[in-house]
């Protein structure tokens, strides 16, 4: 099981800033291990982010997103105390979902 998604969301005057970091190896399938064998591709393909049950960002990622994908975005709406939920699915069908509260800026 992958490490928890790190979520930081701050809201001020109706604008919410969101930082999300999803620990994940994001293996491309092009890298080799010490014995020269290719390391199998393994990367997040889909990310969904909701605030209070409403979709605020959907992302489709490829293997070319860096290890431990980081997303930073902003939206109109969201208030301190609202729940922000982030979930991802990867190429092995593994998935992870975490949530956090929006904080005042």
């Amino acid at each position: 099981m992958a490490d928890p998604i790190r979520i930081r969301a701050h809201s001020r005057e109706g604008t919410t800033e969101v930082h999300v970091l999803m620990p994940h190896p994001m293996e491309t399938g092009f890298r080799k291990d010490a014995s020269g064998d290719f390391i199998a591709a393994h990367y997040i393909t889909d990310v969904h982010i909701e605030i209070a049950g409403k979709l605020v960002l959907a992302a489709t990622l490829s293997r070319a997103v860096s290890e431990d994908p980081l997303l930073y975005f902003r939206l109109q709406g969201g208030s301190p105390g609202d729940t922000i939920s982030v979930s991802w699915v990867d190429t092995r069908g593994e998935h992870r979902a975490d949530d956090a509260r929006i904080l005042p800026a």
Binding site: T28, L57, A58, R63, L71, Y72, F73, R74, L75
Partner: peptide, 21 residues
């Protein structure tokens, strides 16, 4: 193609991330 971001109404059409080149 590195990534696609679907921006619904209400979310700013802005994204910051890190990629492999």
């Amino acid at each position: 193609l590195v990534a696609r971001f679907s921006i619904p109404e209400g979310t700013e059409p802005f994204i910051s991330t890190r990629i492999k080149v």
